[in-house]
């Protein structure tokens, strides 16, 4: 098995593969990522002050924009993709995301339930 074949099987996150590609291809990936990230950031900052969307949906919209931008950063800047050479990186990421959602979602859920069940004063008076 040749080295080049070996390299196709696995990729480190953030790997450049500059030997295989020409310069323009590598830069194009970062330019596309930057363009998408700027677009998502500008929309996130502008959305609440414009009257474009139904006001109660703005928190959800901001959350979706943030998650989309994190995805853009992962794919275009950290080069974590769904390709077969990235299986290990994606599996590790998936495990990390499970923990992150358990910690954040679990904390919010349990504290909200606790506040809702505290009678008398409105939640924590810290």
């Amino acid at each position: 098995m040749s080295d080049s074949h070996r390299l196709e099987l696995e990729t480190a996150p953030g790997d450049e593969h500059a030997e295989a590609e020409d310069l323009g291809e590598g830069i194009t990936g970062y330019v596309v990522g930057l363009g998408l990230a700027v677009l998502l950031t500008v929309v996130a900052f502008a959305l609440p002050s414009l009257d474009l969307v139904w006001a109660p949906s703005i928190p959800v919209a901001l959350g979706v924009l943030a998650i989309a931008q994190m995805g853009v950063h992962l794919v275009f800047f950290l080069h974590v993709t769904t390709g077969p050479d990235n299986t290990n990186n994606v599996l590790a990421l998936a495990f990390g995301l499970i923990i992150v959602f358990l910690v954040i979602g679990g904390s919010l859920w349990i504290m909200h339930a606790m506040n809702a069940n505290m009678t008398g004063h409105g939640g924590m008076g810290m």
Partner: peptide, 21 residues
């Protein structure tokens, strides 16, 4: 049968695990 992965991949993967932590 392929041998261990190149050190660059092992290092990058290890650092990726650190970043996830």
């Amino acid at each position: 049968h392929l041998g261990p992965p190149p050190k660059r991949i092992v290092t990058g993967y290890g650092f990726w695990i650190f970043l996830l932590s």
